[in-house]
Each structure stands twice: as structure tokens, then as C-alpha cells.
Design a binder for these strands. Structure first.
Lengths: 188, 188
DNA sequence: AATTACATGTAATGAGTTACATGATTGT
DNA sequence: ACAATCATGTAACTCATTACATGTAATT
């Protein structure tokens, strides 16, 4: 249940409304902890009810600005320093790799080649993000850059792995007669 | 809804009972698509009801062995070749990185150092898994090795990143007076 | 006057986790 | 006899997604 802590963490920097938070979830946290509008508003209500947030101001159009309380900061620190992150991961991409045997080797190689392309595209998208974000001196900018670097390294690794995997699968393909000819083998 | 396809993929290789599948989920798929017993039994029921699986044999203790049908194979191929994998990712580890500004730089460096250690431990665990698995020639072994290699590269990358991140954070620490002296600065 | 942006909420559904509940067979 | 392993299922709960529902204020 990290959504709770994502909200707390964002509000630790400055007070904000649900609407403001949504923009942060769609930009900075999009690649790390996506959340929907209904989740965010629901969580704000629960956090305020349990005293970790308070409504610090009310504005036009029913706007409610929330601020973290001292109790909220204690909870945030507790989460960061005294609890273990959940490391359970599901990767649909990798799950598919397990079952590539249900396809022909050529189809499997195509799949892995597409994965390489998708990883390269992801890498490029992060590079663009890096260029477009107005990086400041605020803590979330500073530490957000570390997270971005993680993404860059991850996507680079994914592309390399996928290209390597294509080679592995191609090495297993029964060579066709034309490929055998290309490779200088003598047909008999 | 990939659990459906995970079950289908495993049964594409050979028929198995829910109990057999659970062992596969706990070993081969543990790092890729974890599933609980109640999920697996539920999904088997639904897949059999929709005709993608059939009960191919019944054994002692109420054992039901399921086999994939022709329709099931069509669905598996369709999933592999004509649908886009879901790439939505949540990383609690990275979410925490965003909020490390709520700690002192020293505490943040400690957190990242622990992450480096956890990544190294994960890498070592995968190496052990690699040594302990009886790798065969069956498709899941062949392609499972590709997935394992992904894990090895991922954990190696994570450790390198975390060590790099520690350095970044240490570079931002307010120098202590002794460090200022070490750096040749004149105290006044 | 119309459009865009601001702003908050609820309801239905699906996926996943944990705990509970039960019982048969095999090996020592 | 006992323990371990085999074997299947249900119920309650939490988290996340999608769609619906409503209305205000500012801009063009």
C-alpha cells in the first residue's frame, strides 16, 4: 500500500490539492507509481481522516488543499527507514519469453526484436523527458534525477538483452538451404 | 489478465494438475509472474468452463489433470503474437528514491547502500537458481534461460546504479569541518 | 457564448493476497 | 500410528482500473 506513502511524500514537499497531485502523478511519478484520480481522492480522504494530513486551505470550485501533519512526517520517515520495500515484480514481457516455445524460432526472434525496439523507444522517451523537465534544486528534482538515471540504465540493459536474446534464438534455428548457401556451406 | 496466459502457457508444454502448476509457479515463474493457490485453482475452473482447457484425467485424492485444447493453443498464440504486453510498472524501491529528500543525505546514502546490497544478494540468488535447476531441452528450459539472463543483467545493473547513486548523494553532503580541512578550505 | 481548465467525488468490476477449511494417500 | 505430501476449494479483504456524474471559473 504505497499509494498512501506516495501521497505523503509529495505533500511533504509542499501542500497541494488532489488536482495538483494528479498532475504530479501523471508527470514525475508516471513511470514509478502510476495512480488514477479516483485512487488519489480516496486516499486523501483516508489520510485526512487518520490525521496524517489536514485540509490547509479551501479555494474556489471546492478546491481543498492538503498539508502533511507532523504525524504524517513521522509515518513517512518510518516507511523510508524502517520498513522493507515490496520487491514483488510481475513482468508480462518476461512471462511471454517463457512461452516463446509455442511459436516457431523465427516468430520468437521477431518477438524479441520488437522488444529491443520497444526498449530503445523507452530509452529515447526518457531522454526527452530529461530534456523537457525543468530540473530544480528541490529534493524531488534532485532525487528524481537518480530515478531517471535508473530508467535510462534499465532501458539500455533491456535493449542489449533483447538483441543478445535474438542471437541466441537465431543460433537455434534450423538453417534454410539459402542461409546454408549464404554461410558458405556446401549443399549436398 | 496474464495469469490466464501463464496457466495456458504452462499447460501447452504438458498436462498438469493445479497442484503441479503451483510448483511451477513457485519455482520457474516465481520471479516473473507469482500466483497464489487460490488464483490458480480459480483460473483453471474458468479456463475449463470457457473451453480453453479440458480435464484430461482424474486421479486419487480428487486430482484433476488439465490439458490445453486446440482453442487454448489458438488463444496462446494470439496473445503472444497479436497483443501488446502491459508495460505498467510499479517500483516501490524507486518511489522511495523520489522521497529521499525527507531524510538527511547520510540516511539517504545508507538507504541506497542497502539497495546495492539487496541487488547483489538478488544476483547471487539467481546464480544459485541457475546452478540448481536441471536445465533440459524442453522449450521452457530453453526460453527460461533467456529470462534468467535478464534477471542477472537486471540485478547487476541495479547494484551498479545504487553504488553510483550513493556517490551522487555523498557529493551533495554538507562537508564537515574536517572534510573542509581535508579539501584545503580555509575555516574562518 | 463557448470552450478549456479546474475540481471533486461515486460505483462497478477485476486482480491479487491471506486465511480458512477439508480431506485422501503414501512412506516411515 | 504419525507425519508429510498430495489435492482442491471458499470467503473476506485490499488495491487498481474504468466509467460515470457533477459542477465552477477563467479564457477566447
Amino acid at each position: 500500500m504505497s499509494l498512501r506513502h506516495a501521497v505523503l511524500g509529495l505533500l511533504a514537499e509542499r501542500p497541494a490539492s488532489g488536482y495538483d497531485l494528479m498532475k504530479l502523478f501523471e508527470t514525475s511519478l508516471a513511470n514509478v507509481w502510476p495512480a488514477t484520480q479516483s485512487q488519489v481522492y480516496g486516499e486523501l480522504g483516508k489520510l485526512a481522516a487518520s490525521g496524517l494530513l489536514t485540509v490547509s486551505a479551501e479555494g474556489p470550485r471546492g478546491r481543498k488543499e492538503y498539508a502533511i501533519t507532523a504525524e504524517g512526517r513521522v509515518e513517512l520517515r518510518h516507511w523510508l527507514t524502517e520498513t522493507e520495500p515490496d520487491r514483488i515484480r510481475r513482468s508480462e514481457t518476461l512471462l511471454r519469453v517463457f512461452f516463446l516455445g509455442a511459436l516457431t524460432p523465427v516468430e520468437a526472434a521477431v518477438y524479441l526484436g520488437l522488444e529491443a525496439g520497444r526498449a530503445a523507444a523507452g530509452h529515447a522517451a526518457l531522454r526527452e523527458l530529461e530534456a523537457s523537465v525543468p530540473w530544480g534544486d528541490d529534493p524531488i528534482s534532485v532525487y528524481g534525477r537518480l530515478a531517471l538515471e535508473y530508467g535510462l540504465r534499465l532501458t539500455a540493459m533491456q535493449e542489449e538483452w533483447a538483441r543478445w536474446a535474438v542471437e541466441q534464438v537465431e543460433g537455434r534455428e534450423a538453417p534454410t538451404s539459402s542461409q546454408a548457401a549464404d554461410m558458405g556451406e556446401t549443399p549436398d
